[in-house]
């Protein structure tokens, strides 16, 4: 059973950040980052990093205390008031691909800080969608960024896999 579900376990969990150099000192900032989960549900998608730098300007909006100006968040500044830029600034550098394995849960509980750190997938979706919502621009729908693979369409019963329209059955149970 476990192997059968292996693809689910890895699904959407590991995102490869292509060619991101680990330095936050502005030496190599990628123009694009290809986000490709191992999931078979979605096609890989190219994140326009440069465009976001132009629009957002402030790195720490997304990168917390790791790069850019110092953080303002009252919860973070308790420790990171004077933190210098870190060596690792990429998302995957800190956010785990899978936050809910038994070991991950155990590890988390040993920590004092950052115990409630979202997984890589969650970190990105939270960052992206929240900001896009706030700025009232940018894609927020699932397929606005990454489109289904055939398997994805089947998974969501969408497109060619959409259910055939059945005659609506008058049931009171559906409330």
């Amino acid at each position: 059973m476990q192997t059968k579900r292996f693809w689910l376990a890895g699904m959407m969990a590991t995102v490869l950040l292509a060619t991101v150099p680990g330095t936050g000192r502005g030496i190599t900032i990628p123009d694009t980052v290809t986000l490709h989960s191992q999931s078979k549900l979605y096609e890989p998608f190219v994140f326009p990093h440069a465009k976001h730098i132009l629009i957002v300007k402030e790195c720490s909006n997304c990168h917390h205390h790791t790069t850019g100006t110092l953080v303002q968040d009252p919860n973070c500044i308790r420790c990171h008031r004077n933190s210098s830029e870190t060596a690792v600034v990429s998302c995957k550098g800190c956010h785990l691909p899978d936050a809910f394995t038994a070991t991950a849960i155990k590890e988390k509980n040993k920590k004092i800080y950052h115990r409630d750190m979202p997984s890589l997938k969650a970190a990105m979706h939270q960052s992206c969608i929240d900001c896009h919502n706030k700025m009232k621009q940018g894609p927020v729908g699932c397929q606005d960024c990454h489109v289904y693979t055939k398997e994805g369409a089947a998974f969501y019963n969408s497109g060619e896999f959409a259910p055939k329209k059945k005659p609506a059955k008058g049931s009171h149970g559906g409330h």
Binding site: R5, A9, F100, I105, H125
Partner: peptide, 28 residues
Amino acid sequence: HTRLKYGKPPACVEICPREVLTFGLRSD
């Protein structure tokens, strides 16, 4: 039967893109 028994989170938790669902010890 397919997941929790083996220490794995349920399918909904795993697919949730924004970690609306956090899986862990109830006490934690």
